[in-house]
Design a protein around this nucleic acid. Structure first.
Length: 464
RNA sequence: GGUGGAAUGGCCGAGAGGCGAGGCAAGGGACUGCAAAUCCCUGUACACGGGUUCAAAUCCCGUUUCCACCUCCA
């Protein structure tokens, strides 16, 4: 398995620190607004990685944090007229819903920043002791000049950085690039006690503290969006390494979902909010779309592309459902070597998709030729295994029932009704009364039911 | 100013010195009472200008255009 390591700026062979186990820390959401497709792309990308590690036989521990205290969350107290903790809890639930309906495997643990103040205080004590952090009034700052490697991850030199506008005038800092580990309390804001006074954590400190709390001083992979490289991840490295940790062995960063070449941001309105997008395509189709691009490639989001992608997925889904009608609920197939090679090559999902499409074409050919149940079962099982890596197997527990109705009883009634109409139409066809036959088909189509005449009989499906 | 990324056929999207990944759309064909679904065939693409090489989309030099980060962001 080879992965692109942002820190090395190269593809490296992945070897876990502990044989058979993979530990991953992925930066999760700052819960201050509704999740959009860009957020969820990150979730899907790392979920595919997690699934692939499991295929390879690794026991994966995934930590994905929730940043539930932050300037923007506090700012929403006013605009949403509810306490900051209610704002955070509300959006955290929205994120969890989005991850769930997109089929993302729940993390091993999903720690909240506010639950790990103790660990942050300990980390600050260590940094102060070691001379990497200092107290100014009740703020605590990291001293970037004290850490020679500062800037290495992002390729920045301290002297080339534009000093933060709001901190240029802050004479309490030794260097304008020094960043806050801890912010002293301001009137009306929440705070926690520390040896240096009451206050609240800076954004970067929480990830260092929580990564160590759950994964220890060294772990395999740290992931997140490309924008986090600087300053967030750079600062995490500084905090953790300066405190004596080895920290992450690999740094993985997913690229953007963009909109007409522009980075998606919260100001673009509601059209990209996950809950809105899944009204236009089914969640499984959105996942297919997001997972289909290479995780390090920009994904230009567009409605036409989304619809087209959904059509492509339906071809695959059709095969799976038709094959399952013949071969049953078979799974646990073999992954084609070319698919495995693609995934092992820095998760080259698009190349894997080519293998999948070819397998589906071969499978459809079998169905058309009336191949043996055994052959169809093998083909179906293999294809389902590939789909499962991407988390889009339509027959999996996650997605089964997605288009077959909510209640078994209702499904049974519809089945009988449709079969009765199909029988009438077959009778009309047998009598060469094609006018009546077509009328029945049109009538069903108006109800959203599509018919397909095949050698094995007539199939019906709900129209997408 | 500093750092990093990108430009591939109508569209999406891999590849990274030598047989045109794959998908969608389109055209043709098979099947079909007609549809639908499915299968088969067709289409000679790599921003521009130089260079290296028997051979370049791929390597080198230069140019253009676009994007991101350096401030909260997946």
């Amino acid at each position: 398995m080879r992965l692109y390591d942002s820190a090395a700026r190269a593809v490296r062979e992945f070897t876990p620190l502990e044989p058979g186990k993979v530990s991953m820390y992925v930066c999760g959401a700052t819960v201050q607004s509704s999740p959009h497709v860009g957020h969820i792309r990150s979730g899907v990308a790392f979920d595919v990685l997690l699934r692939w590690f499991r295929v390879l036989g690794y026991d994966v521990t995934l930590v994905r944090n929730v940043t539930d205290i932050d300037d923007k969350i506090l700012a929403k107290e006013q605009s949403e007229n509810r306490p900051w903790w209610a704002v955070a809890a509300h959006y955290e639930r929205e994120f969890q819903t989005a991850y769930r309906i997109l089929g993302c495997t729940p993390p091993t643990v999903e720690p909240r920043a506010t639950g790990h103040i103790t660990q942050m205080v300990t980390l600050m004590e260590t940094l102060i002791e070691r001379g990497h952090a200092y107290v100014a009034d009740s703020d605590v700052y990291f001293d970037v000049r004290s850490f020679p490697e500062y800037g290495k991850l992002s390729g920045q030199k301290i002297d080339d950085l534009l000093p933060a506008a709001d901190s240029a005038a802050d004479s309490r800092k030794k260097d304008p690039r020094d960043f806050a580990l801890w912010k002293s309390v301001k009137p009306g804001e929440p705070s926690w006690p520390t040896p240096w006074g009451d206050g609240r954590p800076g954004w970067h400190l929480e990830c260092s503290a929580m990564a160590e709390a759950y994964l220890g001083k060294a772990f395999d992979i740290h992931g997140g969006g490309l924008d986090l490289v600087f300053p967030h991840h750079e600062n995490e490295v500084a905090q953790s390494k300066a405190s004596g940790s080895d920290f992450a062995n690999f740094w993985l960063h997913n690229a953007w979902v963009t909109m007409s070449g522009e980075k998606m941001s919260k100001s673009l309105g509601n059209s990209l909010i996950v809950s809105e997008v899944v009204k236009r395509v089914r969640p499984i189709e959105l996942r297919w779309y997001l997972a289909g691009a290479h995780y390090r490639s920009n994904l230009e989001f567009g409605d036409a592309a989304l619809q087209e992608s959904a059509v492509a997925f339906q071809r695959i889904e059709n095969f799976v459902r038709r094959a399952a009608e013949i071969a049953g609920d078979v799974s646990g197939g073999d992954l084609p070597p070319a698919f495995v090679a693609a995934m092992n090559d820095d998760m080259n999902v698009p190349a894997g998709l080519a293998v999948l499409h070819e397998a589906v074409t071969a499978g459809n050919t079998m169905l058309g030729k009336g191949a043996s149940k055994n052959d169809i079962a093998t083909s179906l099982a293999d294809i389902r295994s590939m789909l499962d890596v991407l988390g889009v197997d339509p027959l999996s527990d996650m997605w089964a029932g997605d288009s077959s109705g909510s209640s078994e009883e209702l499904t049974s009634v519809v089945e009988h009704f449709v079969q009765e109409r199909i029988a009438s139409r077959q009778a009309a066809k047998a009598a060469k009364d094609f006018g009546t036959a077509d009328a029945i088909r049109d009538e069903l189509r108006n109800l959203g039911i599509a018919l397909e005449d095949g050698a094995e009989g007539v199939r019906w499906t709900l129209e997408k």
